[in-house]
Amino acid sequence: MGTRQVSRTVLVAARPEQIFDLLADPANHPLIDGSGTVRAGRDGGPARLSLGAAFGMDMRMGAPYRIRNTVVEFEENRLIAWCHFMGHRWRWLLEPAGEGKTSVTETFDYSTARSPAALQLLGFPKRNADGIEKTLARLTKMFPG
C-alpha cells in the first residue's frame, strides 16, 4: 500500500475476465458497492467502460448527489481505474491466482486528489477502507465457486 492509498485484497472464485466484465459495466457498480453510497448509473454513459470513457453515477453520502467519472487506467481483464473532478481514483487490479481464481485488489488512491490532506482530515481513508472491505465481501459472494 502506497502513501495516500488504501487497499484491500481478496481471493475470488472466478476468472479475471468474469470479474472485469462486472466492473467494466457501470450499471453493476451499485450491486457490488459496500459503502452504501453508489445508488445507480446515470443514463447516457457507455454500457462498457474503456480508457477515457466518462460515466455518471447517482450517489448518496448524507444527501443525494451526482458524480461524473472518467476511466484513467485500463488494461482489459487486469486493471481499471476511474476518477472524478476531485482527482482521487478508485482502482481495481485483477491477478490470476490459479484454479479459476483471481486475486482482486481495490484501492482508494487519494495521492492524485486535488486536496489529499482535506480527505485525510475528513476521515475518508478509514471510511473508504471499511467500504472496500464490504465491497470485496459482496464481490466474493457473487462468485461463490
Rank of each mutant, 00 (worst) to 15 (best):
V6Y: 01
V10E: 14
L11Q: 12
A13V: 02
E17C: 00
F20Q: 00
D21P: 01
A24Y: 04
A27H: 10
N28R: 08
P30D: 01
G34P: 00
G34H: 02
G34Y: 06
S35C: 13
S35Y: 08
V38F: 03
R39Y: 00
A40D: 15
A40Q: 04
R42G: 02
D43L: 04
D43Q: 10
G44P: 09
A47N: 05
R48K: 07
R48I: 01
L49P: 05
G56S: 07
D58I: 05
D58L: 07
M59S: 07
R60D: 15
A63L: 14
A63R: 14
P64C: 05
Y65D: 12
Y65R: 09
N69I: 09
T70K: 10
T70V: 15
V72H: 03
E73K: 04
N77Q: 11
A81F: 11
H84C: 09
H84I: 02
M86S: 12
H88G: 00
W90S: 10
R91P: 03
E95C: 01
P96D: 06
P96H: 02
G98R: 09
G98M: 06
G98A: 06
E99Y: 06
T105W: 12
T105M: 11
T105R: 15
T105I: 13
E106A: 12
Y110V: 04
S111N: 11
T112N: 01
A113C: 11
A113M: 14
S115P: 08
A117E: 15
L119K: 08
L121W: 12
G123I: 03
F124E: 06
F124Y: 15
F124S: 09
R127I: 15
N128C: 09
A129P: 04
I132S: 03
K134C: 00
L136K: 02
F143D: 05
G145Q: 10
G145E: 14
G145Y: 08
